[in-house]
Design a protein around this nucleic acid. Sequence first.
DNA 1: GCAGGATCTGACCGATCGGTCAATTACCGT
DNA 2: ACGGTAATTGACCGATCGGTCAGATCCTGC
Lengths: 204, 204
Amino acid sequence: MPTDATLPSRARASDELLRTALEQFATVGFAGTSLQQIADHAGYSKSSVLYHYASKEALLEAAITPAIERLEALVDDFAEGRRSDAARGVFITRFVDLLLGERLAVHLFVSQGHSLGGIPIVERGNAAIRVLADAICSGATLVEQMRFGVALAGATYALVAGATFFDDVEMSELTNSHDDDEMRAALVEVVSELLLPADGRQTR
Amino acid sequence: MPTDATLPSRARASDELLRTALEQFATVGFAGTSLQQIADHAGYSKSSVLYHYASKEALLEAAITPAIERLEALVDDFAEGRRSDAARGVFITRFVDLLLGERLAVHLFVSQGHSLGGIPIVERGNAAIRVLADAICSGATLVEQMRFGVALAGATYALVAGATFFDDVEMSELTNSHDDDEMRAALVEVVSELLLPADGRQTR
DNA sequence: GCAGGATCTGACCGATCGGTCAATTACCGT
DNA sequence: ACGGTAATTGACCGATCGGTCAGATCCTGC
């Protein structure tokens, strides 16, 4: 028998725990989630959680690292490239894709990034956001900055708020597939309206 | 001697505690804040905190109730009124003023409203948001809904994110007076761009 | 100056926190 | 069949949690 990629009924325990932890962290907060809750929710004992992950913090790190690294890559590309309209366009779509693809991690990072100051991976994420903000703010008017801030923050938070207020069904699980396509299109359009030099409005 | 409104050096103890608690709840989260922390930060003992407020939850309730009630009033006025452009305009400015005037409470409510499901005052706030969302969504296209969502969420979160990433100085204390004026103007402009039928874009 | 409420505090409570450890069980190559 | 590693668990630890309670201490009206 293969050691992994076996029957789909029971995925790797560490993955189950990671998914459960991310879901809990995102919904009730990092501080508000106990290892016991995670263990219960995933069907393991608290000791098992700590066997797979050295600490609660390690669990958090494992949960959001992929999303943070995607964010870093996106920000780096945008920051060092010139800010042509085309560059802005691809940035917007990549940003929206990141939001949709990493909902839970984004929710977690975005709404608790400030409180989780000490954790290294969170600091990396905060640093990336700061780089992005600098790239935006250099030589821009306040209104222009605000436009960028509202666009990105709005897109981000619209998802989070949507998840917060409108999930009758659990917001966990896998992607909502078909809804995401409409959502993606609408988000890209609205953000583009704000950030691209549509019609006769000045870009800067 | 008067029983209150006396020397400004030491305000009412319950007010000090309330301010400290709100600040802590907003910065490190409700679950992440202990009564001991609040007591230490305010210069009292934990017992004193529980003398003035019956429980941690009561402290939270007292801290955000004013902001929630302002929100309810605003949402009610908007929801029952017809949605003319003028009505939208006054809604926008009132909304921005609410954000600026109740920063900490908004931050707290917005970024933890979901996790604090059980608390009655939080539920009232969530209900108000839902009423607002319904008023917006009824008979609107997805893009239109998204425009509204991004605008309000963006304005809200731009403040929160700003507070999260850009306060060299403590974000506590009183209002930043002069900065707020520029901020207010910029916010109103950007939100208006999105929500008002500027130039030749269709309103609906 | 004294009675009495308002305020403040330390000691204490059971529960739960994150985390350690030794022992047990499941599984796999040989 | 066996040996060893990976996985899982309950017992247990000190610390801290939110909250109670019985005094201290202060302050004020009489």
